[in-house]
C-alpha cells in the first residue's frame, strides 16, 4: 500500500522533530528548534494564504503581535488564564481579519500587498504607542503558562528549552495536519481554483470573496498562535513581533522553501531561523541576506527550494 502524500509529509515531519535532539550538541539547540517550529506555524498559515489562495499579505506579523500581546495583557487585565489567552488572541485576530479582510481582499496583486502592509504597520504602531498598556518599545513581561510547574508537580523535570521544543513541535505538527487536510478538501480546491483563475472559479459557482476571507482568517489565526507561543516561551515581548521585518520574514521563509507546500515552507522556516541563530556572522547581516535570498530564489527557483529539489530528483528518476 502506498502512503498518501498527506501522511507521508506528516511522517517526515514527526521523524525529523523526534530525531533532531539526538544530534544537539547542547541544550541551546532546543531553543533554536522551538523558534523554528514557532516560525513554522506562522509560515504554514502563509502557505494557506499565499500558496493555496494566491493572496499576498505583508502584514501578518500584526496578527502575531495580537497573539503575543494577548498573552501578556489578557491574564493581567481580563483575568484570563495564560493558556486561554492563546485562544483569546486567536479569536481576536480572527475577528480583526474577518472585518478588515472583507474590503482589503477585493484588491489584487500589489494593491493587496500595500493594504496588508498598512494593516501590519497600524497594529505595530498601536502596540508601540499605547505604552501605558503595552510597555511601548521596551516590551512587556508575559505571565508564565505554568506548564513547567505542572510537570514538576507530576514529578517531571524538564528544562524550559526542552519543554518549548516539544510544545511548539506539537502545535506545528497539528497546524501542518490541518493545512494538509485543507489542501485536499472542498475549501482547499476552491482556494487553489480561485488562485488559478478567478474568472473560471466564479463561473463554476465559487463564492470568491467568501473563500478568500476564510483563507485570510485562518492564516491570521496561525500567525496569532505563533506570536502567542513566542511570547510565552520568551516571557517577554516587544513590538518587533508585529513589525514589518517579521511580516517580510514570514513571506520569505514560505517562498524560500516553497510556498505551495507545507513541508517546503517549514523547510524555509528552518533555514532562515537556524542560520542567524547558529552563525553569528549571518546574524549581523540577517536582513541583507534575507533580501539577497529572496532575489536569488525568485530568479532561480520560483517554486521554492523543496519543490525544485523534488522536481529535479523526479526528473532524474524518469530519465
Amino acid at each position: 500500500m502506498q502512503l498518501k502524500p498527506k501522511y507521508l509529509s506528516l511522517l517526515i515531519l514527526v521523524l525529523l522533530v523526534a530525531a533532531a535532539p539526538l544530534f544537539f550538541p547542547s541544550g541551546f539547540y532546543y531553543r533554536v528548534g522551538a523558534l523554528i517550529f514557532i516560525n513554522g506555524i506562522a509560515v504554514t498559515g502563509m502557505v494557506i494564504l499565499i500558496g493555496y489562495a494566491g493572496q499576498i499579505s505583508l502584514g501578518h506579523a500584526g496578527f502575531a503581535g495580537i497573539g503575543a500581546y494577548s498573552c501578556a495583557l489578557a491574564p493581567v487585565y481580563l483575568n484570563i488564564p495564560p493558556v486561554a489567552a492563546i485562544a483569546f488572541g486567536a479569536a481576536l485576530s480572527a475577528a480583526l481579519a474577518w472585518v478588515v479582510g472583507r474590503p482589503i481582499l477585493k484588491l489584487h496583486g500589489y494593491y493587496l500587498g500595500v493594504a496588508t502592509l498598512g494593516l501590519g504597520i497600524l497594529i505595530s504602531m498601536v502596540l508601540l504607542n499605547e505604552a501605558q498598556w503595552t510597555g511601548g518599545p521596551d516590551g512587556i513581561a508575559v505571565p508564565d503558562l505554568g506548564l513547567r510547574g505542572l510537570l514538576r508537580d507530576m514529578g517531571l523535570r524538564v528544562g524550559a528549552g526542552e519543554l518549548w521544543y516539544w510544545v511548539a513541535a506539537l502545535v506545528m505538527i497539528l497546524g501542518a495536519w490541518l493545512a494538509l487536510n485543507l489542501f485536499d478538501s472542498p475549501t482547499g480546491r476552491a482556494l487553489r481554483a480561485l488562485h488559478g483563475s478567478e474568472v473560471a472559479a466564479r463561473t463554476i459557482g465559487i463564492d470568491v470573496p467568501r473563500h478568500k476571507l476564510h483563507a485570510f482568517v485562518v492564516s491570521a489565526v496561525y500567525a496569532s498562535v505563533s506570536g502567542s507561543l513566542l511570547a510565552q516561551m520568551n516571557r517577554l515581548i516587544t513590538p518587533d513581533v508585529a513589525g514589518f521585518m517579521h511580516s517580510v520574514q514570514m513571506v520569505t521563509m514560505a517562498v524560500l522553501g516553497g510556498v505551495s507546500s507545507v513541508l517546503g515552507a517549514i523547510f524555509g522556516a528552518t533555514i532562515l531561523t537556524a542560520l542567524p541563530q547558529l552563525l553569528t556572522v549571518f546574524h549581523q547581516y540577517e536582513h541583507m541576506v534575507l533580501g539577497l535570498v529572496m532575489i536569488l530564489v525568485m530568479i532561480f527557483l520560483p517554486d521554492g527550494l523543496l519543490p525544485s529539489i523534488l522536481k529535479r530528483l523526479k526528473g532524474r528518476n524518469e530519465e
Binding site: 485543507l182 480546491r189 487553489r192 488562485h195 488559478g196 472559479a201 485562518v218 505551495s260
Partner: peptide, 26 residues
C-alpha cells in the same frame, strides 16, 4: 487551474454540490 490535476479541475466543477465549510475541511 494549471497547478491542479485533471481530476481536481473537474472536482472543483462539483463545488456547488460539495459542502465547502472551512472548519470541517480543516
Amino acid at each position: 487551474f494549471g497547478d491542479m490535476t485533471l481530476l481536481e479541475n473537474v472536482m472543483v466543477g462539483h463545488h456547488l454540490r460539495e459542502r465547502a465549510h472551512v472548519l470541517p475541511d480543516l
